[in-house]
Design a protein around this nucleic acid. Structure first.
Lengths: 191, 191
DNA sequence: CCAAAAGTGTTGAATGTACACCCATGG
DNA sequence: CCATGGGTGTACATTCAACACTTTTGG
């Protein structure tokens, strides 16, 4: 075997900044016998990510095998440059959008505590369309995804009622849409 | 670089046989600059698979990097042998079970035409619990996943009403659960 | 006529959307 | 007292599970 196969690990980091879903990427060559997670940790500050999951493995146009991870949180990386990288970013965005509707991934976009309006803005930025604060609150509370936390946020200079503070009940990924069909008989949600 | 990194491509093939969800695996070493799909095609008869999707990339316990695909259909492969392989099979089963409830993947388990009872048995085997033929029919027809096809199947020696024949409207993967939340405002299902 | 298998009707619960309305604060 | 933003109530549509009932066949 002449040339040894090279493989790389990519991180695609998404976060909401300035009301937009911002994307950045990082990559490293995986060392011999190094675990994927270890390589990922060299590429990006994993501690600063609230959630990490594997995205996809592809052969890039230059022939390297790339295993991409989706990271959500505050880690810093560089802007995507190549078409390959932009394509991975698209896949990451699509994955996030899908999971926002049937899981609690929102926790990875939000700070520890927040108001419903702030959460609405985060969801709106991530989904790319307006979200109703009213219904977002109802859905996430009914699912048990959000918990109320004491205190409230004082209104801004324009006035308005003080906003109650919430947090995510869990900060680990969980599927929360109770409406998945074809469950075993006699397994109703307890509400 | 002393030893060149080896990477392999796995196929995990699932199908319903004899009322059970049967699993088999196949693998090949990927050749230099070979695409993942090409390697997969050397591992297993992809033409005999009704659906293929990437599952996961892992470092196996012997240090090889394995990219696993989930295949559904009639391709033949060998029984899983190692703990690594059994673990991939578990991941494949879990993926299939989840997707059965919100996509049309059922097409990849079913023949071209079938009765609702036959489909119920396929779903039951794949999900691992009983499925109601009544509700399965209603849900899949309402979603437009199934289409009625002319004719019917004659009853067996025990008698009974002849069963109508159905087929999947599409044999490509599509997400069909209309109940995903957080859709853009004013995008009601048309029924 | 009876058993067996297939298919339809109906009811009730859970979930989401839309929108009207009320609440609390700053000026 | 009014504007502004936050929060609740309520009505309605959609989806699904459960189960009773009807239909169509073989013996």
């Amino acid at each position: 075997m002449a040339d040894s196969t090279v493989d790389v690990v990519f991180a695609v980091v998404l976060s909401v900044r300035a009301g937009r879903l911002a994307a950045s990427v990082a990559s490293v060559e995986r060392r011999p016998r190094e675990s994927l997670q270890a390589a990922l940790a060299r590429a990006v500050d994993v501690e600063a990510l609230a959630h990490v999951e594997q995205l996809e493995t592809r052969l890039l146009s230059d022939g390297t095998l790339a295993t991409a991870y989706l990271g959500l949180g505050a880690a810093r990386a560089r802007p995507p440059r190549t078409a390959d990288e932009r394509s991975l970013v698209d896949a990451a965005r699509a994955r996030l959008r899908a999971k926002l509707s049937y899981t609690n991934v929102g926790f990875a976009l939000a700070p520890e505590t927040f108001t419903i309006s702030e959460l609405r803005d985060l969801y709106g930025a991530a989904l790319g369309h307006d979200v109703s604060a009213t219904n977002l609150q109802r859905v996430l509370l009914r699912r048990g995804v959000l918990e109320r936390v004491g205190g409230s946020r004082a209104p801004g200079p324009a006035g308005g009622r003080p906003a109650a503070l919430f947090r995510f009940a869990s900060r680990r990924l969980a599927v929360t849409d109770q409406f998945a069909v074809l469950r075993p008989p006699g397994s109703r949600a307890s509400g």
